[in-house]
Nucleic acid binder design. Structure first.
Length: 105
DNA sequence: AACTTGACCTAGT
DNA sequence: CACTAGGCCAAGT
């Protein structure tokens, strides 16, 4: 059976997230693109609702910023996985070096 | 069916 | 790189 636009969307997202290797990250937009969709926001919704048991910290925003409202928690994981970070002056306090650790399928 | 919400993106300035 | 405005997508705890 073919895949509908919303059929298994949640699982598809979780599968891709689970595929991201430690120490690397992917943007919401990248994940959406891998699913053949441009719904970066929809991906965020999935993570917010179902990503609790997934390596959600490996999913970041296009600007290299951590998931909104989770910078502090995510930072602990990045530190443990050796994800390259960069000091920043905003609320997050740091920014992820996408150029160095952006994952691609 | 229409409207709202949200762990977003891109292009222009 | 920062900020703004407009856009796109899926779900409805």
């Amino acid at each position: 059976m073919p895949q509908g636009p919303a059929d298994g969307f949640v699982e598809a997202v979780l599968v891709v997230v689970a595929d991201i290797p430690p120490g690397r990250v992917a943007t919401y937009g990248d994940i959406a693109a891998l699913l053949g969709s441009r719904g970066a926001r929809a991906v965020g919704q999935v993570m917010a609702r179902y990503g609790a048991d997934s390596p959600w910290w490996r999913v970041v925003r296009a600007g290299g910023r951590p998931p909104a409202g989770h910078a502090e928690r995510a930072r602990q994981h990045y530190d443990a996985e050796g994800t390259p970070l960069r000091a920043s002056a905003d609320e997050d306090g740091y920014r992820i070096e996408l150029a160095a650790c952006r994952w691609r399928a």
